[in-house]
Amino acid sequence: MKRAVPILLLTIAGLVPLWRFEAEPETVVAAPEAPAAAAPDTAAPDVSGTSQAPAASGAQTVTGSLISTKYGDVQVRLTYAGDQITAVTMVKQPNSGPTKMAVPVLVRETLDAQSADVDTVSGATTTSGAYVQSLQAAIDAKGD
């Protein structure tokens, strides 16, 4: 028996937002800090502003190039702490039409997932050599 297959494609490459024409509201993840009217995202880390770089934590922001889409121009700014992306901000986004904007969900899901305490880790086959420095090795070493 074949089931209906609702695959949710939420993001698109290179931090170009995916523009979902008349997307269902619940399928869309709002930008954490969209300057336009996007809803605040409570799961996103609290960053103080797009132009401010918190000095102490070594945070830095990188602004992507302007990308033209059929709905208008799009520009994204990323905030890094070290190598890790901590926030995604829309610098420019179209404000017309029934388009909805999605932040790169790989980033967002990663942010959400880090706080989770996990029992085990699934990934492509870890070789015994790579295992030594893997998350699973840390879990095994932790004990009960």
Partner: peptide, 19 residues
């Protein structure tokens, strides 16, 4: 319940989701 982290494909020390 068991919580299974899925390794982030780009960052070996992170999860991209937790099941």
């Amino acid at each position: 319940p068991w919580r299974v982290g899925v390794r982030h494909p780009l960052e070996a020390d992170r999860y991209c989701t937790v099941l």
